[in-house]
Simulated scan of single mutants.
Amino acid sequence: MAARDYGQYGGLSQALELVGERWALLIVRDLLVGPRRYGELAAGLARIPTNILAARLKELQAAGVIRRAPRSRIIVYELTPYGRELEPVVLALGAWGYKALSDPRDEQVITPDSMTMDLRTAFRPQVADTLPPTAYAARFSQTELLIRVDGSNLDVTRGDGPADLAFVTDSGIRRLISGEMAADLAIASGVVEVVRGRVALLDRFATTFHLAA
């Protein structure tokens, strides 16, 4: 179990004792995207010391949040059903934190899993349900994601692929998702570079993925 003990009896204090240690919720965030090997978790959380990663994994296992599972002669970490119940909590925290998000510091990076969860957070299924199915191939700095939207279903995978719109951007995508910048201005100012496909679909992307700052 986590070392933190608040000495209080209640749901929130119990939750913080289970997942409130530093890095714990970021490990949960990455595992919400999919099972990960130890090395994949370490690569996705590049600044986490190895002893802290090992300790957090042990604590989360003891709490019943994650488990070790064999996959073709390798061991991966995955969320338990109890751990997956944290998804709406993680998404809500992400939306709340997004309101205070500004331009990144020099040492801050976009990872595939962090961007995937940001897209899940910003996704508006009720809006997407009224739009035609659309696939986007997006490169956020060094992170390439294939984003498929079909009605209220969202599928985000790593890499490139066939898409109705392919574009390149960086942390400036925040301005588009927040509504601070319209799609045409994002293109004109260089925040987004359209590589292929219909330019007008960037407006559909901004309508589908929106988080008010």
Rank of each mutant, 00 (worst) to 15 (best):
A2G: 13
P88C: 03
S102F: 11
D113N: 05
F209K: 01
A95L: 08
R196K: 12
A46C: 09
D30A: 06
L202R: 01
R175T: 08
P133V: 13
T111L: 13
A183H: 03
G197W: 12
D103H: 08
L16G: 13
V65E: 09
M181D: 08
T143H: 04
R71N: 13
I75G: 02
T80Q: 10
D129F: 05
M181S: 05
L60D: 06
T157W: 00
E21D: 06
R148M: 15
D5K: 14
E85H: 10
R4E: 06
L16I: 15
A182E: 06
A54Q: 15
R36H: 06
R4V: 11
L91T: 04
G7Y: 12
V168Q: 11
R47Y: 09
R148I: 14
A138R: 01
A128T: 06
G20R: 12
A128R: 07
V127Y: 12
G83E: 05
R37T: 15
G94T: 15
S114N: 04
G11M: 07
A63L: 10
T116V: 14
A63G: 07
E17W: 07
A213F: 14
L154H: 07
E78K: 03
L18Y: 01
V90N: 12
T121L: 03
G44M: 12
D30V: 01
V65Y: 12
L176I: 09
A100G: 05
L45Q: 08
A24I: 03
Y98C: 02
L32T: 03
G179D: 11
W23T: 00
V168E: 10
L45S: 07
L86R: 07
S141T: 09
R47G: 01
F140H: 00
V90E: 13
Y136A: 02
R174H: 11
L41P: 01
G39P: 01
P49K: 09
A163Q: 02
R73C: 07
E144C: 13
L119M: 13
R73A: 14
D203E: 15
R29S: 08
S189F: 03
E144Q: 14
Y82H: 12
P35T: 07
V65A: 11
P88G: 03
W96N: 00
A200K: 07
A43E: 14
A182Y: 02
P132Y: 13
G34L: 10
L12I: 12
L176C: 05
L12A: 13
E193W: 06
G64I: 05
R148F: 12
S141F: 06
Q8P: 01
V191E: 07
L86G: 04
A166I: 04
T50G: 09
I74G: 10
T121R: 07
R29A: 06
I52Y: 04
K99V: 11
Q8A: 09
L60R: 04
E193N: 10
W96Q: 00
V127W: 13
I74L: 14
Q126E: 05
I187F: 02
V194L: 07
R174C: 04
H210C: 05
Y136T: 00
W96D: 01
A212Q: 15
K58C: 01
R37W: 14
E107K: 11
